[in-house]
Nucleic acid binder design. Sequence first.
DNA 1: GCAAATTAATGATTTATTCAAG
DNA 2: CTTGAATAAATCATTAATTTGC
Lengths: 222, 222
Amino acid sequence: MSPAGSSRWCPTPEQVMILEEMYRSGIKTPNASQIQQITSHLSFYGKIEGKNVFYWFQNHKARERQKLRRKLQLQQQQLYHTYNYPFLHYFDSPASPASQHLSYYNSPSPFPQQVGVLEDAAKQQVMKYTWKLDVPERADIDYKSMMKMYGGDWLMMVDLGPSLSSSPCYFTTTRPPLKTLQLFPVTASSLKEECNSSSPKPLSCSITANNSTPPQVALTLP
Amino acid sequence: MSPAGSSRWCPTPEQVMILEEMYRSGIKTPNASQIQQITSHLSFYGKIEGKNVFYWFQNHKARERQKLRRKLQLQQQQLYHTYNYPFLHYFDSPASPASQHLSYYNSPSPFPQQVGVLEDAAKQQVMKYTWKLDVPERADIDYKSMMKMYGGDWLMMVDLGPSLSSSPCYFTTTRPPLKTLQLFPVTASSLKEECNSSSPKPLSCSITANNSTPPQVALTLP
DNA sequence: GCAAATTAATGATTTATTCAAG
DNA sequence: CTTGAATAAATCATTAATTTGC
């Protein structure tokens, strides 16, 4: 399905270039604001969404760490060999191991040795979670939300459509009453059936409660 | 900050009881719909939000697995000992190790041995990510969104306010134009400053580009 | 040259680990 | 010490490079 819709993001060279430059310049775990801005900017060079940027930084950071680890392992190995066989591996050992941690990519940065200075900066205070909504009439629609409690209410970001042009973002603290969910009481089996379509022994879990007594949870076989 | 707003959810005994019962009854990784319904139901017994339910199931599943692993390790250890010292550990070995995987909690379920049957159900297809938005006038507001591409548009769930009463949920595919974000061009330093407030060497990253030439990324020290 | 077959990169999920509040 | 919340590591899965045989 190459035309008109791939299953995963395929970054353009420009996008990769800019992302790498930003990473090198110190942005390791961008917050939502940064992601949003980066996304709108990169959308100029091709189809891109916020999650792509988010994932890119996640993966890039992780894989830089990985490379670093492997490099250090290798060095230790070499150290071992050098120690045990001092006349071997004399010319092909890395020149300045400690100072070239992050100079992997080929773009000639004006600050080749400054990279990684901000590595262990204060950790981002982001919290993430997800869920999947099955609207009764429309199965298998899932949503990912990004919210924060703010002054007692949930705020939420709207990012409609993959930003092909420079994408505007909207916020709201009001509720456009478009659709309501089916509410309780709901049995555990009706909840469960979305989870396991081929459950060997379907149970029915009914929960009855009122304000004064502890809730009664009853499991029954239909 | 105990009165009028704790920093983390404190589940009531009823809530825990119901959650455990649901877990036992087969709900291991509820989707958004289930989470929403569970949340609205449990909000009857106290303050609770969707993310609490989400996290609870995540942690509970992980820690059950952990317990299981440790138990199995222990058993193997015991097997080893039994094999090497056959007369020790004779009476205190577990009665029926294979059949009581998940009967840890103390609530007397009518189906004590049926638990865990649905353990390796089809994996949820949820995708999660987060970002944090800093609205210019109001620092440190972060949002968590839950979205999915659906027919070319992002759908999004709105969950306003911790559901103290049975909470209605709203969906929208339209854009209420309430607030716009600051857009590009943005320097990397302005992006970065939210990330590291005490960066030792602030860089300025300016990106210039047009449609025909490759983008120019320039880092400069202010 | 050019596809089918393999391999390497890397985008996207899931699982495990760690942090920190109470 | 328990456990809610957050982060990092491991894993899966798809796409691009590349090799290979014709």
